[in-house]
């Protein structure tokens, strides 16, 4: 058995996960995430990207396999310990920016810091700094419903980055955006992560997005694949057969 490299901050071995209704999620996925890198998990929809991220971040307990974070096991932790780990070490970005609608933008960004017990002033300073860095500093006092989608997504990124997580899980953070907003959001995320040495696990189905990452792990039908030989997009099936000219 090959020993994992020393600088793997997070690694998983032969992850198996089945959804509660019995549909298969992951079947034997192994991967390691090095410290400070941006790892893209690519694959089409339904290939298990989100499930992999949820398993790695300890949101759901896995059926079989191992997940290790900083040389300590995650798969053996109880729900409370996993929750504490998520709060203190991990960040999470949803595909949809789910902000708390009652709080304004900077309070949303400062919420994880406050949940960790940081003082209000410190949390506000950190949140405002991150918002300014992500170009939404001028909206810091607005409510989330006043913002556009891309701005809300940037606020969600600021919220995930503000407590300085060790690993940031981004689950298709740019899926519902147009391309201009998408590149902007991705660049800001990548720049912030690289400048602060934050490890990012980025799920995406977009090859352009995956090009931003250091490495890419391809998933297909819940398995890790190294060489994907998908057939070229052919003509619509049976179209030639039914054509009058043939």
């Amino acid at each position: 058995m090959e020993a994992p490299p020393d600088n793997d901050v997070l690694w998983a071995r032969s992850l198996h996960f089945t959804h509660r209704d019995g549909s298969p999620g992951l079947t034997g996925v192994s991967l390691g995430v090095r410290e400070g890198e941006i790892l893209a998990v690519s694959g089409p929809r339904g290939s298990g990207k989100t499930t992999l991220l949820r398993c790695l971040s300890g949101l759901v307990p896995i059926d079989a396999g191992e997940v290790w974070f900083n040389s300590s096991p995650v798969h053996t932790l109880g729900p409370m310990a996993r929750e504490r780990l998520r709060r203190d070490r991990f960040g999470w970005i949803d595909p949809e920016p789910v902000l708390v609608p009652e709080l304004n933008v900077w309070e949303n960004a400062a919420l994880p810091l406050m949940l960790r017990g940081a003082g209000r002033r410190r949390a506000k300073v950190a949140a405002l700094e991150w918002l300014e860095r992500l170009d939404v500093g001028d909206k810091a006092r607005a409510r989330p419903h006043r913002l556009r989608h891309a701005e809300r997504q940037r606020v969600a990124i600021a919220r995930a980055l503000a407590p300085g997580p060790t690993v940031l899980f981004a689950d298709e953070p740019t899926a519902p955006l147009h391309r201009a907003d998408r590149t902007h959001v991705l660049r800001t995320l990548a720049t912030a992560a690289r400048s602060h040495g934050i490890t990012v696990v980025l799920a995406t189905h977009d090859p352009d997005t995956a090009a931003l990452a250091d490495r890419t792990v391809a998933l297909l039908d819940g398995r890790r694949v190294h060489t994907v030989h998908l057939p070229d997009a052919p003509d619509a099936e049976g179209r030639a057969a039914c054509s009058l000219s043939v």
Partner: peptide
Amino acid sequence: GSGDGERPGHRSADGDPHPAGTRAAG
């Protein structure tokens, strides 16, 4: 296809791992 459509500040920030680019843009 490497996402060139980006602001100059971010492009420079992409080169060196420092958020000064975004700050400058700000």
